[in-house]
């Protein structure tokens, strides 16, 4: 977390310092893998395939960026992202008659509300972060089922720019939104007082408390961001398919965790940057796409994703031990 304020004496050695080495390796690996796939796999670099990679990356990535604020602030994971995304997809479709922006706002409001609720439970009442968010996930899924009557809701009218529009061939608007969120998130996390407090809280919650930092507010904020991220992800999925239902975001929780950990966010909090989340997301999206175009089955993709997370957490544990 030093780079924003206090540049390391050498940029290169900074990139491979124990705290940054995983993030750097993943960034390089993503680029190398992408370039190799471009030359060795037919049609990999086609606009259609590139946009399918970016569609997958954008939804997972936005959820992962929100989740990262929870992890960086030292509360491990929020396990209610899938449920939030599902509810959000339903709300987005129901409100889609009013236009894309109002529908997106409605989804966002839902995510923020449920995020704030979890933030209050974890930050203010000091309940266990994992249990509270699992419980919240169940509550949200139940409410979503009740609202949708358990059925898939369908959008009226045709596809929208948010669902299928591209800025240039191969780059959907959703990817632009993802990039914007990453950049804004990165800047806020590194340059604002709140970002500093959030990260300090993550490295040592007790010391943050005793230093008089705004700990409770930061925890609530992190869950609001996680809820907002999941809600946007749900809205984007709904916009793509024109449907909203409970299956949206079924594996979003794990995908977001995977993207974040592979990118180099430390599970224990405090370490890692928002751009790392982006590189982890792209790494997994490219890897999954390569498996897909080579006709590997869904189960293989699942296994590879699981394996990638295991390798990432192992690397994280080894690096933590080394730096001690």
């Amino acid at each position: 977390m030093s780079t924003a304020t206090l540049a390391p004496s050498s940029r290169l050695s900074g990139l491979f310092a124990p705290a940054r080495v995983q993030a750097t390796v993943i960034q390089i690996a993503t680029v190398v893998m992408f370039l190799l796939a471009c030359v060795s796999i037919d049609n990999f670099a086609s606009a259609a395939n590139l946009s399918s990679i970016l569609y997958a990356a954008s939804t997972v990535g936005i959820a992962a960026v929100g989740l990262a604020s929870v992890t960086i602030s030292g509360n491990l994971f929020a396990l209610s992202l899938g449920a939030t995304a599902a509810f959000s997809s339903i709300v987005f479709i129901m409100a889609s008659g009013l236009g894309v922006w109002p529908a997106l706002a409605a989804s966002l409001l839902l995510g923020v509300a449920f995020g704030a609720l979890q933030g209050l439970v974890v930050g203010w009442l000091r309940c266990n972060a994992i249990i509270s968010t699992i419980a919240a996930g169940s509550l949200i899924a139940g409410l979503a089922t009740w609202v949708s009557d358990g059925r898939t809701v369908l959008a009226e009218g045709g596809p929208t720019w948010l669902g299928s529009g591209t800025i240039v061939p191969g780059v959907p608007w959703q990817a632009v939104l993802f990039a914007a969120i990453v950049i804004v998130g990165e800047v806020l996390m590194q340059r604002t007082r709140a970002g500093w407090e959030l990260r300090l809280r993550g490295t040592n919650p007790d010391a943050a408390e005793l230093a008089g930092l705004r700990v409770t507010r930061m925890v609530i904020l992190s869950y609001v961001l996680a809820g907002a991220g999941a809600a946007i992800a749900g809205a984007l999925i709904a916009a793509q398919s024109g449907t909203g239902n409970l299956r949206v975001g079924a594996d979003l929780d794990f995908s977001a965790i995977a993207a974040m950990l592979v990118g180099g966010i430390a599970i224990g909090g405090g370490r890692g940057r928002i751009i790392d989340v982006a590189s982890g997301t792209l790494f997994l999206a490219v890897l999954t796409n390569i498996l897909l175009v080579n006709n590997f089955a869904y189960e293989v993709q699942l296994m590879v994703k699981g394996l990638a997370v295991l390798v990432a957490v192992t690397a994280g544990a080894l690096l933590a031990r080394k730096s001690r």
Binding site: T203, N204, G270
Partner: peptide, 9 residues
């Protein structure tokens, strides 16, 4: 535990 942030600059 409470005095400093060991893992911060």
């Amino acid at each position: 535990k409470r005095g400093v942030f060991l893992e911060a600059p």
